[in-house]
Simulated assay, not measured.
Amino acid sequence: MQPIPRYWATADEVVTFPGRGEFALTIRGSSDLSQEDAQRDARARLQRLVAAGGPGALRGDLEYYPDRRLPEELLEEVRSPDGELIAAITRNRYGAAVLNTDAVLISDVDLTTGSEMSSRRRGRGGLLTRLFGGGRDGAGAEEDPDAYGLPDPGARGEEHARILQVIADFSVRHPELGMRTYRTRNGFRLLVTGSGAEPGSERARQLMSELGSDRLYVLLCRVHDSYRARLTPKPWRITVDRLESLSARSPRDQEYRRWVERYDAASRDSAVCRLLETAGPAPTAREQQVIELHDRAVGASSGLRLA
């Protein structure tokens, strides 16, 4: 895979588009080579956007979003025994560690009935309460099926079963592919081996579409040129406030370091997903290395509550 950018820069310009008025544009560029190369990338992205007619002109096909790639701190590079870069771990905009790789196709599938419905059924707060007032669930959380990735009665349980059937049907259609199925807090994660599909390829888009992946996740894989999987809990699910300015801070910043320490300590009692089943051919050694890294990081066999 391509290295994760180590350098970031921005290009700013006020541009007048005929019939639309002025736009203050800010575009980020990145590079693994140098700060100067990151600045050149930012300028090139800005020029492409201007030549295309501005953000509104491209929004309909979601093509503007690749120019909005956000900087992420590079935490670790993972190499095969022969030195090939096969994965990298970054910290995303709200502070979670994220696996980036092109060695294994990763697809997340959400329960489309949504966690909001599940929360309302249990009499808890809505989305804004969970995101910003949140922390751990209140009384009765231990009985919450979502907290352990378990199906519950009613529409959400039916959706759980439906998605498992979609996954089973996919495996039948693609016996050449290995499948590892995990339950997340609000859906499923699939690690698919043997596809050889590049993250931005039509083959990857087709396979993820068959599995029911969110369209924006498919786009995100193309934008980052890697499959992505969150490895650590969402902060608001483990009683840690989201540090809104995290993406703009340096790892050397004291407030940043204190936040990371609190987050890491609070993460120890939670998992991100749990392994349900495996199917198909065995992974290659390269794929297995990424799978083992993923499973250790997410607590796939820990039995801990999911966050």
Rank of each mutant, 00 (worst) to 15 (best):
Q165L: 08
C273Q: 06
A197P: 13
I163E: 08
L49V: 12
Y182D: 04
R6A: 14
P3N: 09
A297C: 06
T184Y: 03
L293F: 03
R40D: 13
E287L: 08
V218E: 13
R59D: 15
L219G: 11
I4A: 07
T184W: 11
V240W: 04
P199S: 00
T10N: 03
D253F: 05
E210W: 10
F170N: 01
E77V: 02
L85H: 14
A271H: 03
V104Q: 15
D241V: 02
I291H: 07
Y64P: 08
G194I: 14
L111N: 12
R189T: 13
A51F: 13
D32N: 10
A52Q: 13
M208L: 14
D37V: 10
P151Q: 10
D144Y: 08
R43E: 11
V172A: 13
A285M: 04
P151V: 11
A265Q: 06
E73V: 07
N100I: 03
L275R: 09
A87I: 10
D82F: 06
Q39G: 08
R136M: 06
L211I: 04
T129S: 15
I106P: 01
T129D: 13
Y65L: 15
Y182T: 10
Y256N: 02
L99P: 01
R122S: 13
I27P: 00
R136V: 03
E22Q: 15
P281I: 12
E22G: 02
E13M: 05
S301V: 13
T232R: 10
T184F: 02
L275A: 01
V260Q: 07
L85T: 15
D253W: 00
L177K: 09
G114D: 11
I163R: 13
L128H: 10
E202L: 14
R79K: 15
A282I: 04
M117K: 14
L75G: 00
P175N: 09
Q39R: 14
E116M: 01
L105V: 10
I106C: 04
R122V: 03
R120P: 08
